[in-house]
Structures are given as structure tokens and as C-alpha cells.
Simulated scan of single mutants.
Amino acid sequence: MSGFVGVLMLDTAFPRIPGDAGNADSYPFPVRLRVVPGAGSTEIVQGTAPPPALTAAFIDAARALEAEGAVGLVSTCGFLVHIQEELAAAVKIPVMLSALSLYPALRLASGNRPVGILTASRQSLLAGGLASAGIDPAAVHVAGVQGCTAFAEAILRPKSEQPDTLNAEAIGTYCASLAAGMVAKDPRLACFLLECGNLPPYADRIRQATGRPVFGIGDAAALLWRGAQG
């Protein structure tokens, strides 16, 4: 085996706990993390693409990782789906910036039953994130964790206001309850897709609360890694 998966990271200060897309130990294969300066949560978690200067910074970081030997690229924020096509066209290696890229396969694998999407911001995802991912809003159930105080105050604030601690227990409880409520509302829901790269640490709790499979950006990274190995 050779190479690594490059992980484009938002510029944040909150802890990247095990399971988080921005923690190298979350991956059972080599990764290389690359922070894009100035790309904070408040700039990227939006219903539209980031400003051209930030898009250019992501492309520069992607090209640098490719030159260093990356076999594929992912990111820590699913809202970078807004620049998926532009960034993928700028390099010669596979790119899956968002877990939302997994949606078409999950939809088919689930017999076209509804997929539940947990996101950092429901409003922003519905405002443009789903459209950028090519997802029909009528085919999915979307719930946001922006209403979780422990999540919002740590992750959805400007970097200068983000704490150096994270109440993972509170966030996990919120996510499990949110997902269970979605299944109770529509038992046809086949699986969950985590848009946000900060949510995979709570995937097991979501599985336990719902009995449904859960997928995230780590699965996209694993797909790119396995595809590159001889």
C-alpha cells in the first residue's frame, strides 16, 4: 500500500475528538490533514458556495496534497459539496468533499426508501446544499443539530469564539434522540447519512437508537483509499 487520503479541513479551534473527520486517528489508513486558513464554520456552513478566494484556497490545498502523493481527497465539512465539481476538475485524483456524495448509492441500496440526513444546519442544507449535491428534497428527511446548544456553541461560532472543550455526551444524546424521532415519524426510513464531519463520533449512538445503518465522510474516504490499493 502507498499514498494517503488527503483531508481538507476547515479552520477551527474546537476539539477534534476520535471519530471526527479532522482527527487523523479516525481513519484506519494513512491520511494527511490540511487546514485551509480563513475557512471557518461560519464561512462554509452556508446555502451557497464560499467566496472565490476561499474556493481558490481549497483548490490550492487540494493540488498540494495531490503533489505530495494523495490518492484521493475528502473534507471535514459536507457543505463543501458546493465546490465539489470545481475542485474535482482541478486535480487528477478522486474527490468526495462531502458525505452527500454517497447519497445516490445509498438510495439505490435502500430500494429507493427515504434516507435520513443529519446536518450541521438544516436551513443551509435546504437553502442550497441538497441542490448542489443533486439530491431531491422530497426523497430525504433532513434534520439539523443546530438546535443542540453544545454543538452550536462549539462548532457553529467564529473560530475566535470556539471553546477548547466539547460536551460530546450532550451532542451524542441530542443526535440519538433526533434520529429516533425521525424513524418514529417515518418507519420507512432506511439509513442515515451524516452531512457533517463532526457527527461521526455519534454514529454508534444513532445506530443503537434507530436500528438503522449510518454512513459518513469516513466511508467516502475508505472508498477512495481501497480503490487506490493494488
Rank of each mutant, 00 (worst) to 15 (best):
V45W: 06
K92G: 14
V74L: 00
K185Y: 05
Q146Y: 12
V214K: 11
P18K: 10
D204V: 13
G3W: 02
L199S: 13
P50D: 02
K185D: 15
P158M: 02
L65D: 06
C175Q: 13
R113L: 12
G128L: 10
L199K: 15
L118C: 05
D60E: 15
E161W: 00
G218I: 06
A138V: 11
A176C: 07
R226V: 03
L224Q: 07
H82P: 05
R157C: 04
A138K: 13
Q208A: 15
C196K: 08
L193V: 12
Y27S: 10
M9V: 04
F4G: 12
P201V: 13
H141Y: 08
K185L: 08
T12L: 13
L100R: 04
G69C: 04
L73H: 04
I83M: 10
G40A: 06
P94V: 06
A176K: 09
Q46R: 15
A179V: 08
V81P: 01
F151L: 01
A143W: 11
L100Y: 04
Y27D: 11
V74R: 06
V7W: 00
A138Y: 02
L100K: 08
A133W: 05
K185R: 15
I155S: 01
P114W: 10
Y174Q: 03
A143D: 14
L224G: 06
L193H: 12
L194K: 09
A90M: 07
G6T: 02
A88Y: 06
C175M: 15
R63E: 07
N112C: 04
E66H: 02
L126F: 04
C191Q: 14
L87K: 02
G128M: 08
V95F: 05
T55S: 11
E68V: 07
T76G: 13
A133G: 11
T55H: 08
A131I: 00
T149K: 14
Q208Y: 00
G47N: 07
A221K: 01
A64H: 12
V74K: 06
R188Q: 15
G227R: 09
F14D: 01
N112H: 14
T173D: 13
E68W: 05
A143L: 14
I59G: 02
V145G: 02
L224S: 07
S41R: 00
S160D: 15
A139K: 14
G116I: 11
P51S: 12
R226N: 09
G172R: 04
V35L: 01
S2E: 09
T165R: 14
A222T: 09
S132F: 09
L106P: 06
T55R: 15
Y103D: 03
N198I: 10
A120T: 11
A139D: 13
I217F: 01
F58S: 00
R16D: 08
G47A: 13
I135S: 05
A53W: 10
P114T: 10
L73G: 04
F151D: 00
G128R: 05
G111E: 05
S132C: 07
A105Q: 14
P15G: 11
L102M: 09
E66S: 01
E85A: 15
L33R: 10
